[in-house]
């Protein structure tokens, strides 16, 4: 058994001649929080899409829990414990907040469709369990009072938190957050940092974050990859990155 939850070896992705991601390698262990930073267009979301297998890597390998998943599809990867949020929130508009979170648990539900038709006792039991777990995830992110609300009626910041709750519900081994602080005001960002810390404390998982906001990344991450134009120009602990001249030149030197 490999000690790494997620490991990639030189994955690349080309789009019609444009290299979006070039030989990206990373490894993350259980309980770690790592971050990917870089300017817009650096290929960060493409990396996420490669990891969650919305795209297939052109080269390189991806290993989840020691298993080679390079050739597997999106659904399989998700069922193996990889969960993510999206840059533009993709909540299910036809379901309320609680149901949205329940969806994270649904694929593992322990009753069949025939049992569902007749609402047999097993269905009631399972639904109770699913509801309890979903409510727990909402509690961790202080969203309990929004249970019955429809996502489209909620403020943007709350929607982003619901996305995290939903990703959390699927009990992932690795939780990937795509720009969780985008569009949040400074106070909300502080709250988010606390929430992510709570998540790490209460759940056994690894977290991979894409972000622009330096305060979030520097505060939370154990290890950081700095991307620019698809290449990894630097990687290391927050202290190492802060002092890295290449990083300072390419990224930190710019005003946010």
């Amino acid at each position: 058994m490999s000690e790494y939850i997620l490991k990639t070896e030189e994955i690349s992705k080309n789009f019609g001649g444009v290299s979006a991601v070039d030989k990206f390698s990373m490894k993350i262990s259980e309980g770690e929080i790592q971050g990917i930073i870089g300017p817009n267009g650096a290929g960060k979301t493409t990396i996420f899409n490669l990891l969650s297998h919305i795209y297939c890597p052109d080269t390189g390998t991806v290993e989840l829990n020691g298993v080679d998943v390079t050739a597997k599809d999106q659904i399989t990867i998700a069922s193996m414990g990889l969960s993510r949020t999206f840059q533009n929130t993709r909540l299910f508009t036809g379901l309320n907040v609680l149901d949205n979170v329940k969806v994270g648990l649904d694929h593992n539900g322990k009753y069949s469709i025939i049992e569902a038709f007749f609402k047999l006792p097993r269905v009631r039991r399972e639904e109770k369990r699913i509801e309890a777990e979903a409510k727990k995830c909402l509690e961790v992110l202080e969203l309990s009072k929004y249970e019955k609300a429809r996502p489209s009626n909620l403020p943007y910041g709350i929607q982003r938190r619901v996305e995290i709750a939903r990703a959390l519900a699927s009990n992932p081994k690795i939780l990937m957050l795509d720009e969780p602080a985008a569009g949040l005001n400074p106070e909300e960002v502080f709250e988010l940092i606390d929430f992510i810390r709570d998540i790490k404390k209460n759940f056994k998982l690894s977290i991979l974050i894409i972000e622009h906001r330096m305060d979030l990344i520097m505060n939370l991450c154990d290890y950081i990859y700095v991307q620019d134009f698809g290449h990894t120009i630097a990687e290391g602990t927050p202290e190492e990155i802060q002092c890295n001249p290449a990083v300072l030149a390419a990224y930190l030197g710019e005003e946010e």
């Binding site: 998700a78 993709r90 379901l95 149901d99 469709i113 939903r166």
Partner: peptide, 24 residues
């Protein structure tokens, strides 16, 4: 039931549904 939820999820956003291991 959970099937109803999964169906609505896939109707609203098939890609996101797949990312929650729903075999659409």
């Amino acid at each position: 039931s959970r099937f109803g939820r999964m169906c609505i999820a896939l109707k609203n956003d098939e890609l996101a549904a797949k990312s929650f291991a729903i075999n659409v």
